[in-house]
Computed example of a mutant assay.
Amino acid sequence: MKSAHDLVVEAKQTVQEISVDQAIQAIQTCDVLIDVRETEEYLAGHLPGAVHMSRGMLEFKMASNPAMQPRDLKIVLYCKTSGRAALSACSLAGMGYSHIQSISGGIDAWMAAGHEVFKPAQPTFE
């Protein structure tokens, strides 16, 4: 029986992972930057310009959004460390998307490299 780690290792063998440095250029030229983390993670801070589609809802959100229908969209994915993004990339490839990249190391590597993270203002109730 395969573990979650086994599935991620297999996914990373077929996914185009890019470094944080390569991600800067890829983000500038992609059609959509997708954060596949959970809602709480996204709200705590995300890459500027990223849209949120959690790993569990990704396929459904892609299928139901007409703007996401073209299978030649240039897609960049990320999560916390890159496991969920790799699994997401495999799933999207299975749906016929052909230009998918995953940021190696995820948002953790992005922040470790000193790059900007957008943190939405939290409401106050005072």
Rank of each mutant, 00 (worst) to 15 (best):
W110C: 06
L43C: 03
D35Q: 06
G49E: 10
Y42T: 02
H99E: 11
Y78S: 06
G114E: 13
F118T: 14
H46K: 11
V51I: 13
V32E: 10
M57L: 09
L77A: 01
E40Y: 01
H52A: 11
A67H: 15
E59P: 10
A121K: 13
Y97F: 11
A93W: 00
Y78C: 07
L47N: 00
K80Q: 15
V36T: 02
A44M: 03
A85K: 00
A63C: 03
G94Q: 13
M111N: 07
G83E: 00
Q122R: 15
D72Y: 10
G56K: 04
G45R: 06
D72V: 14
C79S: 10
P120S: 08
S104D: 15
V36Y: 01
Q69W: 03
G105V: 06
S54P: 02
C79A: 07
S102N: 15
L58R: 01
G45C: 06
S54F: 04
A121M: 14
F118K: 10
C90R: 09
A93G: 14
L77Q: 00
E116Y: 04
V117T: 09
F118R: 12
H52K: 04
S91Q: 12
P123Y: 10
V76S: 05
C90V: 06
S91C: 12
S98I: 15
Y42K: 02
A93C: 12
A89F: 02
A44C: 07
A85V: 07
V51G: 02
K119M: 13
S82I: 10
P70A: 11
S98Y: 10
H99S: 07
D108T: 14
R71V: 03
G96L: 14
S91L: 12
V117F: 11
I34Y: 00
Q101N: 14
